[in-house]
Design a protein around this nucleic acid. Sequence first.
RNA 1: CGGGGCGUAGCGUAGUGGCUAGCGCGCCUGCUUUGGGAGCAGGAGACCGUGGGUUCGAAUCCCUCCGCCCCGACCA
Length: 574
Amino acid sequence: MLRMSSLFLRTLRDDPSDATVASHKLLVRAGYVRPIAAGIFSWLPLGVIALRNVERVIREEMDRAGFQEVHFPALLPKDPYEKTNRWEEYGPALFRLQDRKGSDYLLGPTHEEMFTLMVKGEYSSYKDLPLTIYQIQTKYRDEARPRSGIIRGREFVMKDSYSFDLDDAGLETSYLKHRDAYISTFNRLGMKFNIVSAMSGAMGGSKSEEFLAPCSTGEDTYVLCPKCGYAANVEAMITKVETRDFGNPAAMEILDTPNTPTIESLVEVMNSKYNAGITAADTLKNVLLMADGKPISVLVPGDREVDLKRVEANLAGVKELRLFEDEDFAKRPELVKGYVGPQDAKKFGLKLYADPRIQVGSHWITGANQKNKHMRYVTHGRDFEVDGFIEAAEVREGDSCPSCATPVVIDRAIEIGHIFQLGRKYAEALDLTVLDKEGKARVVTMGSYGIGVSRAVAAIAEQSHDEIGLIWPEEIAPAKVHIVATGKDDEPFAVAEKIALELERKGISVMFDDRRDSSPGVKFKDAELIGNPYIIIVGKGLQEGKVEFRVRKTGEKSELPIGEIVAHVMKITG
RNA sequence: CGGGGCGUAGCGUAGUGGCUAGCGCGCCUGCUUUGGGAGCAGGAGACCGUGGGUUCGAAUCCCUCCGCCCCGACCA
């Protein structure tokens, strides 16, 4: 039983000044966590209980699925990460350190290498597969900018699992098993979530889905189809293009368009000077980018911006992508800023990538590669060819769902889980093979599955709170029932204690506010702030032999005879 | 890393060149109070982020460094 009279807890009346999101404010105010450094927190007793509860649910679901728990060090030698090239690739986000001998170490940001090596060390036969193992571990990433309190920290608790299979079919099965386990996990955690298709990002690999907890303060943007349920991270959203017959456009024609370096000014001149009756969507925007030091041009309709994240996610193998800057233009005088067109790309030795909306046969008004001049009827397939189609344009609310063409909605969310089919990248790099039936060595294929554990605590807080405090789901709350005794006589405290003990005997966790020197107001405020799902108040109702029962989430109140309260709680908590 | 903001007691803050750095919450002591962050009285707690400079005098002005937050770049 958590007794408030001795609980190591101090709630705060004011929000901490440096917190902006609800989870951060409330977790600090209610005494769950305390800040230590940017993106680094200490957990107080209530926080530890909530965190352990999340871990417990995850463990139970992992174990139920037949996965086995292991544990790695957080402090790791450099060598395995050199073999997979991540010592370099991970860049400045990797916490690096040296021991007294000057050997390089790192604080694990993720443990693919260690899992792979562990399996390599123990197993060598196809008969040992499939296998899925997991750990719950503190991870370290030196984020460029930690933010939003617990949501994006530099130290955080993560559950990560890895599956090992002989072939792709096995991987698919392991993947789906994990997917199911995640669905039950997040359901038990009382979270609202969407499963969206995603890019696998820096880890490499192919098929990938994210579990997103919708929430206005989330930092991920995703699209959702209200009709068919299609959901995707904006980076992974597939453009739906209706095929059209563009007829036979006239030959390219060069036009004088003075002072039209922007789409807006171009549309204005085209309409006033040439009476063209066009909109920005009829123009072709040529956005010049530097991809790993090489210039490329990305084509999107003039009414859309290029989404660099989408481009990067869809351009295989590119590590660094940035917009052209003035000095880049200075080095390539043939590329006239504001007047670039695709028709001379071959001559300029420029790679062209087109958004799917730039269909073959479509014709456009675009730059003439001369200052103050544009061209029209510039036709894809006739006047220029592209090196490939990529998802490049920004996604907008109302864009067509790729599977059913319904206008999609856009929402924000916190990423709480990510599952993906890693494939053989790490197994190859670290030479993880098993012998197959024929006695031949085969590289194992892997899946990788993560849940942000500490982040989930914050995400739940984000999704479930009100103006006065936290509202925990039963599985996560520090206690299921919060009992408040009020008054200066001993009686309410004795009655409350009796109820508390009886509930505990029945397996219901209890937080008991047995403080004799606090006023009722303080106790009520604290109970609401701390956010346990049910509150029992033992006080003035005693005269009629009653106690008050409240549901934190709904605010619903009822008076019950003392003798019935335990049964009532048992009924409600199921 | 670029842009912006901010560092005064455990928390929230006032103080922009001049007396002993003020207030609220919290904390301690006593009395009163006990169904919505109680009242009265007394008290403890601050090298005003750090180092340097300007000045008769610096929390206050200038510079350095450190730290924190926000936007962006980046990232589960």
